[in-house]
C-alpha cells in the first residue's frame, strides 16, 4: 500500500490530531491521508468520532464552544489550523454536504448562488451560468430548470440533497466532505447519489462518512475504520474489506462488533 499511495498526491493530511469537547476526549492521535481525486470513506460504530474528524477538515468544530484541537491538518502544504489560514477561504476550498438535506428556505436559484453571493459576486449572467453548470454537475438540471424560482423546500428529499451538492459545486471547492449524505434517502435515491459521487471524484477529492459498510465498499478507494475516537486502521478499501490487518477491523466488517 505504501507504494501505491506514494504515487498519488496527498490533497489533505491529518497528523496526530487530538480533539476535546470540553473535557471529553473525542479524537485521540488520529492520522490519515486524503488522496487527491479519490474517495476516502470513514466507517465505524455510531459515536466513534467520524463526524468529528470530518468536521475538523474544514474547521466546522470551531463553531462549537469549548472545543480544543491539537495536531495538524494539512491542505496541500498549509496547516489549516495555522495562523495564515483564513477560515472562510478554507471552507470555500473544503466544502461540506450534511447528513440531512438542508436547503435554505429560499428559491432553488438563490440556494445555488448563495456561496457566490457571499463571496461578493454580483454579475447575474455569470451567476446564471454557474447555477446551470452546478445543477448539471449534481444531475438535477433537467428536473429543475423550469422552476428555478420555486422554493427549494418544495423539492423531494433526494432532489434537496442534490441541490445541496449543487450549492457546494457552485463555489468550486477542491475537497468535498459528506457526512452520511444518504441516510435520509431511499435505496434508489441512494444509488443515484453514489453514482454521482463516483462521477464527482473525477474532479474533486471526496471524504465520506458512512455507517453503511456496503456503501463504503461500493464507492470508496480508501477506508478508515474508527473506534472510540481512534483510527484503528486506514487502508485501501479492498484491503479493509477482504484482509484487514487489525482484528478489531475484521470483527467490525464481519458484523461481530457489539
Amino acid at each position: 500500500m505504501a507504494n501505491t499511495m506514494a504515487e498519488i498526491k496527498n490533497k489533505m493530511r491529518v497528523e496526530g490530531l487530538d480533539l476535546y469537547y470540553g473535557k471529553f476526549h473525542a479524537l485521540t492521535s488520529v492520522s490519515m491521508p486524503v488522496q487527491e481525486n479519490k474517495i476516502t470513506a470513514l466507517i465505524g460504530p455510531s459515536g466513534c468520532g467520524k463526524s468529528t474528524l470530518l468536521r475538523c477538515l474544514n474547521r466546522m468544530n470551531d463553531l462549537i464552544p469549548g472545543t480544543k484541537v491539537t495536531g495538524q491538518v494539512m491542505l496541500d502544504d498549509q496547516d489549516i489550523y495555522g495562523q495564515a489560514m483564513e477560515v472562510t477561504d478554507l471552507r470555500k476550498r473544503v466544502g461540506m454536504v450534511f447528513q440531512r438535506p438542508n436547503p435554505f428556505p429560499l428559491s432553488i436559484y438563490e440556494n445555488v448562488v448563495y456561496g457566490l453571493k457571499v463571496a461578493g459576486f454580483r454579475n447575474r449572467k455569470m451567476m446564471d451560468e454557474v447555477a446551470e453548470r452546478s445543477l448539471k454537475g449534481a444531475w438535477m438540471w433537467d428536473y429543475v430548470k423550469d422552476k428555478l424560482d420555486q422554493s427549494a423546500l418544495e423539492l423531494p428529499l433526494d432532489q434537496q440533497q442534490r441541490l445541496c451538492i449543487a450549492r457546494l459545486l457552485a463555489i468550486e471547492p477542491e475537497v468535498i466532505l459528506m457526512d452520511e449524505p444518504c441516510s435520509a434517502l431511499d435505496p434508489i435515491a441512494t444509488m443515484k447519489v453514489e453514482e454521482l459521487m463516483l462521477e464527482l471524484a473525477k474532479n474533486y477529492t471526496i471524504v465520506i462518512v458512512t455507517h453503511n459498510m456496503q456503501q463504503a465498499s461500493r464507492v470508496s478507494d480508501y477506508t478508515g475504520y474508527m473506534l472510540l475516537g481512534k483510527m484503528i486502521e486506514f487502508n485501501d478499501t479492498r484491503v479493509i474489506f477482504t484482509k484487514p490487518k487489525e482484528k478489531l477491523t475484521e470483527e467490525y466488517i464481519s458484523g461481530k462488533y457489539g
Binding site: 466546522m60 472562510t88 456561496g115 463571496a119
Partner: peptide, 15 residues
C-alpha cells in the same frame, strides 16, 4: 432559526 442554517452558511464560506 435552525442551527443548521448557520452551519451551512459558514460551510459555504460566509462570514
Amino acid at each position: 432559526v435552525p442551527k443548521v442554517y448557520r452551519e451551512v452558511s459558514f460551510s459555504l464560506g460566509a462570514s
